[in-house]
Amino acid sequence: MDDVVGADPFMQEVLGLAAPPGLTVDVYTVDDALQVLSNTPSRSTTMVLMKTPQTARRLYDGGLHYNALNIGGIGNAPGRKNIFKNISASREEIDILTDLMAKGVEITLLTVPGEKSKAFSDLAGKV
């Protein structure tokens, strides 16, 4: 879910084309994704991909109270500092994650499959 890609049919085709066989990719703007997910009775086999913690918060605040959130990689940019491996975050993003954690979301940091994931709770307060 992403407002830019959700409004870009060409990019949606690019992403869908490269999906592993048997996997369906649906791309929505954040508002549309919220609508679709809220109206889907079984979400057990749905993986939600987002670019930023801001989107994760919109999803949560929109009423979709997920239990777990993995941070898979956030590039460095002005205003962001490195917090773990190739994950960087701004003050605002760290605050969002800290807040989601306080609401009971289990937040992990795992950038590459097979590695040991790091609990965000181990970093919170130190970053």
């Binding site: 956030i74 590039g75 460095n76 940019a77 491996k85 190739n86």
Partner: peptide, 8 residues
Amino acid sequence: LPEDSPES
């Protein structure tokens, strides 16, 4: 590179 974002 690891420090790159899609934008950079």
